[in-house]
């Protein structure tokens, strides 16, 4: 709420994260990512689409600072730079893993409040904001439930609420809905778009589902595996809001076909 709105969705936005010739080699010699150049603009919804092993999760981990690139640089053009020209990494980000990754000993509200408490907020205030966030993801009344009392989809909602409770500028999602059934996944896709529309964080969504990436994103980055590299950068020209009618429209089918072709090229590359 306290950050500037990104404007209308089609207005050109400033680059928020700039990956410059990023490579990542693991200790065992595997080249996970090779020479990736990618600019992520403020407020956009980007999907990283690719087969497993294409380094999309590795890219997320590097953006979040959990791991460091072996070569290349991640620049944050909007952040202050030090004398050597290195930008400060944006700490203002949320991360959603493939598993809900909740603390089983803590109630839903305690899980959501944790990022705030780690940042030093008083418990009462943190819980108040967390309750609002839980309501926003549709879990009003479940504040005091333990994770084991919630369904898979609800746990994922708690996980999303936790990622968004700090009102981050960036939301990184690593195949968050892959383990859910299709009906639940569709609902969560809609609700995620709704949250994104309201708050306009920059969303980076890793997926191996063509349909999911087309439905959600403004832009699809198709990646190939071994080594992980960018094969195509597609604009999804469909307007928002998107809903079930979009899912059955010819435009959606065309976009899915295009993305599928690019993905097939990436797999056989």
């Amino acid at each position: 709420m306290d950050k500037p709105a990104a404007g209308t969705q089609n207005a050109p936005a400033a680059t928020l994260i700039s990956l410059q010739c990023i490579s990542k080699q693991f200790a065992n010699g595997t080249l996970a990512v090779r020479n990736v150049d990618l600019d992520l603009r403020q407020g956009e919804f980007v999907s990283l689409l690719g087969p497993s092993g294409c380094g999309k999760s590795t890219l997320l981990r590097m953006i979040s600072g959990l791991s460091q690139p072996s070569a290349g640089e991640i620049d944050w053009p909007l952040n202050p730079h030090d004398s050597a020209g290195h930008a400060e990494r944006d700490r203002d980000l949320g991360f959603v893993f493939q598993d809900p990754t909740l603390m089983p000993w803590s109630r839903a509200i305690g899980n959501v409040a944790m990022p705030l408490i780690l940042k030093g907020m008083r418990k009462a205030e943190a819980y108040e904001r967390s309750a609002e966030m839980l309501e926003l993801v549709g879990l009003k009344g479940f504040e005091k439930s333990f994770p084991r009392e919630l369904s898979g989809g609800m746990k994922m909602r708690v996980s999303i609420a936790r990622a968004l409770v700090t009102k981050p500028r960036i939301l990184l999602m690593d195949e968050p809905f892959a383990a859910l059934d299709e009906i639940t996944r569709h609902r969560l896709n809609d609700d995620l778009l709704d949250l994104w529309w309201k708050s306009r964080f920059t969303a980076v969504f890793v997926t191996h589902s063509v349909f999911e990436s087309v439905y959600l994103s403004q832009r699809i980055v198709v990646m190939a595996a071994r080594p992980g590299r960018v094969m195509a950068d597609l604009d999804v020209s469909a307007p928002y809001p998107r809903s079930e009618t979009f899912r059955t429209s010819p435009l959606y089918a065309d976009l899915c076909r295009l993305a599928s072709e690019k993905l097939k090229e990436a797999i056989h590359a």
Binding site: G138, L139, G152, I183, T184, H186, D191, D194
Partner: peptide
């Protein structure tokens, strides 16, 4: 989003 009300967790499962 027009035509969309407040989110509530009413997905089947």
């Amino acid at each position: 989003l027009p035509g969309r009300t407040m989110i509530t967790a009413t997905d089947g499962t």
